[in-house]
Design a protein around this nucleic acid. Structure first.
Lengths: 354, 354
DNA sequence: TCGTTGAATGCACACGTGTGCATTGCCTTG
DNA sequence: CAAGGCAATGCACACGTGTGCATTCAACGA
C-alpha cells in the first residue's frame, strides 16, 4: 500500500506530492540545486572533481531541505554498512560493561555505529554471529562466549574482520586481543607470597573460563617452589557463577573453618572477589587482610570504592577498547598485518586487601 | 572496482563466477530450486499462497546454499529496518546499565536489534537522534538526556515511535515512561520520619535532573508538617556529579561536623548513596544507621551487597524494559493509544541503612 | 582557426529485496 | 462441455545511492 501511495507520485525530476509525507532524497536536492543526482552524491562524499561553487550550492540546498542521507541505500550499493557488531552476553559483568562503554565510545569516534547482539545461549553463538552478516557489518567484536571456529570462514569470505577480546582464540582468521593473564597470575602470586600467609587458594567459576584458567595456572606454577618445600599449601576453589553471588556463596562454605581454610586467595575476577570479601567480613566476621588476604583481577570501579579497597591486577578497559578499534580499522582498511595476537600489559593495583 | 569484478559476472539466471567469492542471494536460491525469485521471497516471509511442496523445497535449497537474507536490501524496499535506536550516554550509571541490559534482551526477544547511539555532549542530542533516521530505525528509546522538542516532528513525520524513559517528557508525539517518583519521595520521607531523626537532607547532583527533582520535591512536601512544627529541619545537599565520587566528595564536606549535619538523608539515586555511605563510614567513622540514616533510589545490584545493604526505593529495571518494548511494539503496529504517559510503581526495599 | 587537453558534470547501471498485477493451469459447477 | 473461479507462480517495477564512462565546454597552444 505504501507502493500505492507512491504510484501517483511523479517520477524522477518532477514535483513530489505535497499532500503525503515525503522523505527528502538526493534527487530532491539535485532538482532544487539544478544539478544531477550524481553531483549531489559526489559533493557529499567530498569528490575533488566538483567545483567549489557547485559544492557550496549543493551543501546549502541539502541543509535547507533537511536532507539526511539514507545509509541503508548507501550500504545496499557499497555492500558495506558502517555498523560494527558487538557480540556480548548481558551487561551483568562489571568489567565487560566498562570495556563496552569505552568500546562504544571509540567505535563512534571512528565514524561507526555499534550493533549489539546479545547471546545468552552459548549454543546460539554461531547463528547469532551469522545474523550480523545480514546487516553487512564492517566488523565484529566478540566480548563474550566462544564462537564455533567454522563461522570464521564466512567472515573471511565476506572480508569482514573479527576481533576476539579476552577470549580463547579459535576462530579462523580472527584477531585475538588478551590482557597479560600470565603476568597477572605472577604478580598476584608474588604479592601474596610476600604476606607470609601459607594457605593459598585460587577462586574461579566451575568449569573455568579461558582467561581465568590461564591466570590460575600461572599463579600455581609461581607457587611451585614453596609447594615443593612444603612451606605453603594450595587449594583450588570453585564457585557456581562468575559473579558477586557466586563468590559470596562459595566463600561462606570454604571459609567455614577459618583456621584451616585458605587465607591467601587470588580470584579470577574482581566481581567474584567482592562477594568473597563481603562473605568473609559480614558473614564470618573475618578481618581483611589480617585474617585473610585477597587479590582480584580487572580493577573494576567498585574495587576502588571505600567499602572494598580491593588489591587487584589492573587491565585498562580504555586501552583494550582502543586496541580493539585500532585493529579493526586496520583490517577494514586492508592492512597486511603479520601478528594476529595482541597482549595488553597489566599492573598491580595495591590497596587494602593484602 | 567491485563493479568491475561483477561486470563479467553473468546476469540474473546464469551461472555465477566460481572464481570470485560470491554472496548467495535469493536469485541463487530461486535458480537452484527452479522457481522465480518472487516465490523465494514469499516462502521466506511465510506467504500462504505458496504450496507446501514448493515451500519445503525452497527452504531446503536455501539452507543447503547457506542463504542469509540481506536485511539491508529488505529495508531498502520496505523503508523500515528491524533496528531500534537506543540513545544513551555511557555505561557508567549502574541503574541505566541494568535497564539497558533488560531492554536489549527484550528488544531482541521481539525480533529487533538494538543500535546504540552514545551521546556524551548534550548539545549533540538532536543531531545524534536525527542520525538514527538514516538507518530507517523502527523505533527509538531515549534513556539519557533530554532531546530538543523539535526533533520529535521528524520522527512523527516518518512514523517512527519514540519512547522516553525516566526523562522530562517534552518531545512531540513521544511516549513517556517514568517510575513513580512521587510515591518514591513519599515512601522515603515516611520511613525516615519514623526513625526519630530530626535533621533531614536530600542529596542530588548540582542543577538536578528531572527524576531527582520530583523525588526531592515530594520528599520535602511530605516533611512539611514537621517542618512547620519546628520538630525537624531540612537541608538541600548538592554534589558535583551524579555518581559514587560525587556522593563521596559531597558527604566528606557536609558531614564534617556530624553533630549538626543532616542525619536522615534521602539520595536522588543509589549510586550517589553508595559514595555517601563509604564517606560516612570510612572517612568520618560514623555508624549507619545509628549516627546517620540513608535512603537511596533505584535498588541497583550493589545496594543488595553485604558491604552496603542500602535501604532504597526500588524500581524494577525488568518491568521498565518490558513496558518500553510493549509500548514500542504497539506504536509500530499502529495501535491508537490515548495515554502517552506510563507510570511504573515503586516499593521500599528495607535493609540496614535506616 | 582548429585540434587537444582537462576540468566539470550527466547518464545509466547495479546493489538485493518486496509486492501489485498478470498469467497459467486445474478444478468445480451449471 | 464450456465457463468461471481459485490456487500457484512469474513479471516487472520500485526503493535511494555510488560510480564507470560518456559528454560538454572552456582554455590553450600550434
Amino acid at each position: 500500500m505504501s507502493k500505492a501511495e507512491h504510484k501517483p507520485a511523479t517520477r524522477d525530476g518532477a514535483e513530489p506530492g505535497r499532500d503525503v509525507q515525503h522523505i527528502v532524497t538526493s534527487a530532491d536536492v539535485a532538482r532544487e540545486a539544478g544539478v544531477s543526482r550524481s553531483t549531489v552524491s559526489r559533493c557529499l562524499s567530498g569528490d575533488r572533481r566538483i567545483s567549489d561553487a557547485t559544492r557550496k550550492r549543493v551543501q546549502e540546498t541539502a541543509n535547507q531541505l533537511g536532507y539526511q542521507i539514507n545509509k541503508i541505500a548507501r550500504s545496499m550499493n557499497t555492500r558495506k554498512s558502517d555498523l560494527i557488531g558487538l557480540v556480548t552476553s548481558g551487561l551483568s559483568d562489571p568489567f565487560r560493561v566498562e570495556f563496552l562503554d569505552k568500546l562504544i565510545f571509540a567505535i563512534q569516534q571512528s565514524g561507526y555505529r555499534p550493533l549489539v547482539i546479545d547471546v545468552s545461549d552459548p549454543a546460539q553463538m554461531g547463528t547469532s554471529m551469522m545474523h550480523l552478516l545480514q546487516y553487512q557489518v564492517a566488523g565484529v567484536v566478540v566480548t563474550s562466549g566462544s564462537p564455533p571456529p567454522e563461522v570464521g570462514v564466512h567472515f573471511l569470505k565476506r572480508n569482514v574482520p573479527v576481533v576476539l577480546v579476552n577470549r580463547a582464540g579459535r576462530l579462523d582468521g580472527a584477531d585475538v586481543i588478551n590482557c597479560d593473564n600470565v603476568r597477572g597470575g605472577e604478580l598476584a602470586a608474588d604479592l601474596l607470597l610476600g604476606t607470609g600467609k601459607t594457605r593459598f587458594g585460587f577462586l574461579n567459576v566451575k568449569g573455568g573460563t579461558f582467561s581465568g584458567n590461564v591466570r590460575g595456572e600461572t599463579f600455581v606454577s609461581r607457587l611451585a617452589p614453596g609447594l615443593a618445600n612444603g612451606d605453603i599449601s594450595f587449594t583450588p576453589l570453585v564457585c557456581d557463577s562468575a559473579d558477586y553471588d557466586g563468590g559470596f556463596n562459595a566463600a561462606v562454605k570454604f571459609l567455614a573453618q577459618p583456621e584451616t581454610a585458605p587465607n591467601a586467595i587470588f580470584c579470577a575476577k574482581d566481581h567474584i572477589a567482592l562477594g568473597l570479601l563481603d562473605a568473609a567480613r559480614f558473614e564470618l566476621g573475618l578481618r581483611v587482610p589480617e585474617d585473610i588476604a585477597v587479590v582480584g583481577f580487572d580493577d573494576i570501579a567498585a574495587a576502588r570504592q571505600g567499602a572494598y579497597q580491593l588489591t587487584t591486577v589492573r587491565q585498562s578497559a580504555t586501552k583494550l577498547a582502543e586496541m580493539t578499534v585500532d585493529r579493526l580499522r586496520q583490517r577494514i582498511r586492508g592492512d597486511n598485518l603479520a601478528d594476529q595476537r595482541l597482549i595488553l600489559s597489566v599492573e598491580m593495583a595495591r590497596r587494602r586487601t593484602v
